[in-house]
Amino acid sequence: MQTALRTSVPETELASRANSAPHARVAREERPLHVSGLSLNIRGLRKSFGDNEVLRGIDLHIPAGQFVAIVGKSGCGKSTLLRLIAGLEKIDAGSISFGDEVQAEDIRVMFQEPRLLPWARVLSNVEVGLGRDRASDDAQLRAEKALTEVGLVNKRDQWPSVLSGGQKQRVALARALVSRPRVLAFDEPLGALDALTRISMQRLLERVWRDQGFTAILVTHDVSEAVTLADRVLVIEDGRIAQDVTVNVPRPRERRSVDLADLEGSILRALLSGDERI
């Protein structure tokens, strides 16, 4: 099996992935409907902006299909790590490799802002997510299916401006899902939502993750969200992974259960302990 290695050497990863050979397409279509996630291997990853050393050596292995949450103080480099994984920033040193050959459509990112095109109807916004398959005959069908998955197929012909914040984020999720990605990275996707919408979105995320089996990487400020959703919580501090906590609570999980609360408490204490030292 060929391994796509992402190191500091190649120029823009996005471009090289987009140019991958046509034979890769065939392999893609033969894949079973139930998509399997990709495993992820990060070695000695470093990234700085000017003098600001943001990531100072991240070593991390994520098995295929795992749900990982990343928490840490504001500005600790969570988004940077996610953007590196998604190929949106250049790596300074180290490498990120996936367990299989990857194409642009295999890795998707969802941001805190829905980033929908205001001038495209909901359905066309979802079609954007198909990447190079946008022009194919079944594009509309696939987009409709993705919209059904997030429960918004009845809004297919609306403009994004008439949707609520939570609905917009669901459309963004459908757009990310429509290409059946094998890694889905979330950068605080629920950060701007109210508490109730947040909970229903968390359920939705968990459901699609279970149904589709992609590898999920969720950056969040909310430790309780992290322990509710993830198999594993990573705490980033000083540019490194300071803690790697496995959440051994069977699903479906009960929010606010004692086990989760304990875990949440200990992670929060770890996060705050740095402050007391200062």
């Binding site: 996005l14 949106l88 642009a104 459509e105 980033r115 001038w119 495209a120 954007v128 990447g131």
Partner: peptide
């Protein structure tokens, strides 16, 4: 710029990016 980045992430080349994102914007 966030929309432009989104377009790039979803594999739009220059022409398509212009047609779908930049010009309507």
């Amino acid at each position: 710029p966030q929309l432009i980045e989104m377009g790039r992430i979803y594999g739009m080349r220059d022409g398509e990016l212009f047609r779908r994102v930049i010009f309507p914007g």
